[in-house]
Design a protein around this nucleic acid. Structure first.
Lengths: 119, 119
DNA sequence: CTTGAATCTCACATCGGTGTCAAGTTCTAC
DNA sequence: GTAGAACTTGACACCGATGTGAGATTCAAG
């Protein structure tokens, strides 16, 4: 599939898809004329990438992480090195703290909303 | 208390505390010489502000939200207007989606970590 | 062919909270 | 008084994913 369709199906801009390529997150075959041609599993991968970005991971970490993920990307899953496991564990803990923070903020907002509704 | 102590106790930089003031999030009394003098409840407020920033709210929203929060800031709690409630509800929903995304990313990381540990 | 939609590359802009440095002033303790 | 720490304002830089526009090329359908 080409970049326009992938963008439509994932909700991610073409600009971002090209950016992912420069970051080594998502490669594509090329048509004789140079247009990108994505496999079907690119849809899942792009969604994963977006989630990881949203979780605060930077391109470099995602790039290291992707080959170790178990998804239908055609390739075999690599095993994370000790160094990477250490990094990812730190990220996971950071995400846990982030979720806890978000819960508190969610509660704060909810309380204000409920107070206003009850008034 | 002065800005240095507040920074130390909250873990937020002096730079940020001054920035919060320009955004109308945190005012302070001034000593005759012009130094900021914060009340005790500023500690709680700064932590709340940090949480809300972390949740993706911008200064303007936080500024509108703060007076409606029920905390020991000395002042009476204001009631959110309909417009604000609508905005906050949207933010709350966004936070919920964010938490769901984070859970997925957390699971992704955890799976890679576990796979490596088991290998 | 031709034509219009789609894609290409490249470059520059944006956002907003925070870091940082500079030069000057105030506070505190001796 | 005086030294040094703490504070003041102001300006500039940064990050990094994404938006945007230009100008050129390719693709697909008539």
């Amino acid at each position: 599939m080409r970049i326009g369709e992938l963008a439509r199906r994932t909700g991610v801009s073409e600009r971002s898809l090209r950016y992912y390529e420069t970051q080594g997150l998502l490669t594509a075959e090329r048509t004789p004329g140079g247009h990108r041609d994505y496999p079907e599993w690119a849809v899942d991968r792009v969604i994963r990438i977006q989630e990881l970005y949203a979780a605060g991971l930077h391109s470099e970490k995602i790039r290291q992480l992707l080959p170790c993920m178990r998804d239908r990307d055609g390739g075999p899953s690599a095993i994370a090195t000790g160094r990477l496991v250490k990094d990812l564990t730190a990220e996971r803990d950071r995400i846990d703290r982030m979720i806890a923070d978000l819960r508190r903020s969610r509660e704060t907002l909810d309380e204000v909303i409920r107070t206003a509704r009850d008034a």
